[in-house]
Design a protein around this nucleic acid. Structure first.
Length: 112
DNA sequence: TGGATGACCTTAA
DNA sequence: ATTAAGGCCATCC
């Protein structure tokens, strides 16, 4: 398994409930800022076997990037169940729900 | 214009 | 048949 893939999986696993991350951010933390697609690929394929909280991963706009209506709704419900306020436009407040990682520090400004 | 972003498609073991 | 790895390019702001 590629170290990049492992890192991506680790990062995704470290995402706390009620928080979301973006593909580009995960890719950047994994070491490749331009490998957002890889993150997509990993989420799509490995999340199932690795039991990853794929529903906590959204695009840079804070929207659910899934195209499958079923999976889309699944993620929608999962996010709302965790406390993530998903608007009718599936727009998530990244400023409030985006997770910056543990290693980033402890800048908690109320939320979870 | 330009730079970032992306839930894919293909190949190999 | 399944699981994993890699990248270019259209699209949006």
């Amino acid at each position: 398994m590629a170290p990049f893939t492992e890192k991506v999986i680790e990062i995704i696993r470290q995402i706390p409930a009620g928080k979301v991350m973006t593909y580009g951010q995960i890719a950047a933390l994994a070491g490749s800022p331009r490998a957002a697609r890889q993150v997509v690929r990993i989420l799509h394929s490995m999340s199932r076997k690795h039991r990853l909280p794929w529903h906590r991963v959204v695009n840079a706009k804070g929207e659910i990037a899934i195209q499958d209506d079923e999976s889309f709704h699944e993620q929608l419900l999962a996010l709302e169940a965790e406390g993530v306020h998903v608007g009718l436009h599936t727009r998530i407040d990244l400023d409030k729900f985006q997770w910056h990682g543990e290693e980033f520090g402890e800048g908690e400004h109320g939320g979870i």
